[in-house]
Design a protein around this nucleic acid. Structure first.
Lengths: 348, 348
DNA sequence: CTGAAAGCGCTTACAG
DNA sequence: CTGAAAGCGCTTACAG
């Protein structure tokens, strides 16, 4: 009376064929009310649940989508997942989350680890993937393609031919640079990201463009690579400040993300820098804590839930279309005019 | 040459039977090296991947676990998921995440929505579930049980008979109360949670016990129910402060979680209260931003990744055992001795 | 409106 | 060491 009852048990109990039970299950029209009733009664008596796995076997549909994300501990990705999951549910699908680590490290073909799952489609976030692994992964994606539709999200390289929703980190960083420069900043640091990551390269492009736009020199001390957690940002800014005379300290920092920005705030505080008077800090992702930091953090809203939802739509639509993700700068107190207290700058 | 190749294609190509291909696939011993080689060559030529769904069909194992969590946007749950996912991977399984919303609202038997997935087991977090839905859910769990092993985590009611890893919120809140009272606090507020939630009841038990231990009166103005987000905490404390003369303002707040605590910090700041001198704030969950708030937040480390990992172990072991989750108070600057500035307290 | 039969792509005894 | 055959629990034409 339980997990082991199959469509045969129900058919026998209701005195019909399994085809009829199947019709009732799938709510197909063309079953007489009386029959339907008997079948439904038998189903509930047995607590019968059709096996989605057997269904998948015959129907070739699993009603399950996959999403590959770097990690979940950064709320940025939790937002993307949530958006995707909600949209999928509305379309009658569920979403399986694959942390990046769970599919990489698979000997030759990382992406093929997904193939055997026979998903109805997969959303892959190409971000924070070390260059080498990333290249190998994109390569192996070609072999995944025959198995299921793929949509890429994130910093999608222009040359790959997949449906994608991408954001242009170069454009974003350049925009932030222009804003900071407009506020009088000339010494602007860019902190975070691994030098080998795909999306870092895009950030650096925007950073350099921003400098060029204002005819400012590139000072390599102001570009520090590091991981994506608060402690990474803290260490990175600590290191920068300690290696430079105060006269050369940056007056603004663009952080990889809000986590790194949090670390920068902590470092600034410890070094006696007032934010934003002595140091402006700009984050990215606009995670839930950004407004609650002190000072509240200026950041970039990447509209992550919308991004996740849109990726699902694109995946289900089957279009091979490339879109740009929306983004928007959110102004809070951590970013402001450049007005460092010169009395404290012993070097000037 | 792709998604459509099956074990038959490989068998034909390699000139063997499908049983032999299956043996090679599963790395069974007892296949001659020559044969194995031919099969492997055919597999890689076709980019063949066995269908996990067909495998599940015959082997009755899906190597997939489920985990039901209230939401992912609170990092608390992202930590639990991460711990579970890592542990599952080490055991050769993957973990499917089911947001609470995705399985509830299913007409009669919410838990049965999981049944058809034929998971190898499921971890269910019983928390933040409105009482009514929660009761219905626990009830329907009985019908899920024949389908797959279940492990409960969270504030698991003592009366349910499932393997579980539970934390005793009553004990935790009582402990925090004792600590605050030891620091001289007498007016302690408890903020957050929905009155109807199971785990709130446990918190309230601990709160009342804490008051009793110190022979302090229960002042209902100090107990405010609200949601679990920063804005909820902010509004809740705002409301409390605005309804009381400053002389009666609490000198300490125990928040539902760190998100609510963040909101309380903001509210305190806006009301000119120094933390911790005028108001101590204690959060729960010790999420990544706790150390980066101003002041850094005293919180409870719930060892979430360990909890998730342990739940997976318990699930796979098949033991029907009930364990207590580890927890630990983390002391930071937001909690301290009660020494409000009386000059500011116009009422005294 | 209903049923008999084939088939989805594998694994698993059972023979040899 | 290898293969023929049954079977997992459904859906899907095809008949009637």
């Amino acid at each position: 009376m339980a997990a082991n009852s199959t469509i045969y048990d129900i058919a026998a109990e209701a005195g019909v064929s399994i085809a009829t039970v199947s019709r009732v299950l799938r709510e197909e029209p063309g079953v007489s009310p009386r029959t339907r009733e008997r079948v439904i009664a038998a189903i509930s008596r047995h607590n019968y649940r059709p096996s989605s796995i057997a269904r998948g076997m015959t129907s070739k549909k699993t009603n399950t989508l996959g999403i590959v994300l770097p990690k979940l501990l950064n709320p940025n990705y939790a937002m993307i997942f949530t958006g995707a999951s909600d949209a999928a549910r509305a379309a009658g699908c569920s979403v399986n989350l694959f942390p990046w680590r769970s599919i990489v490290g698979q000997a030759e073909n990382p992406a093929l680890a997904l193939a055997e799952r026979r998903l109805d489609g997969v959303i892959i976030c190409v971000e924070y993937m070390p260059q080498e692994e990333n290249a190998r992964f994109l390569e192996s994606l070609r072999e995944l393609r025959p198995f299921m539709p793929i949509v890429l999200i994130g910093c999608v390289p222009a040359e790959v031919d997949y449906p994608a929703i991408s954001y242009n980190m170069a454009e974003i960083v350049r925009h932030v640079m222009a804003w900071l420069i407009g506020l009088g900043h000339q010494r602007i640091a860019l902190i975070g990201g691994m030098e080998s990551d795909q999306d870092q390269k895009r950030r650096d492009v925007g950073y350099l463009q921003g400098l060029q736009d204002a005819k400012l020199p590139f000072v390599s001390s102001y570009r520090v690579f590091c991981g994506g957690n608060p402690a990474d940002g803290e260490n990175a800014l600590d290191g920068m400040l300690e290696q430079l005379q105060p006269a050369y300290w940056p007056t603004a920092v663009i952080a990889l993300n809000d986590l790194v920005a949090m670390g920068c705030l902590a470092s600034a505080r410890r070094h006696g820098l007032r934010v934003p008077e002595d140091l402006s800090v700009v984050g990215c992702d606009n995670i839930f804590c950004a407004p609650y930091l002190l000072p509240p953090l200026t950041s970039i809203d990447m509209h992550q839930q919308e991004l996740g939802a849109r990726a699902v739509e694109l995946l289900l639509s089957g279009e091979n279309k490339r879109e740009d993700a929306r983004w928007e700068m959110v102004f809070r107190a951590s970013g402001g005019p450049c007005e460092p207290d010169m009395r404290e700058r012993k070097g000037e």
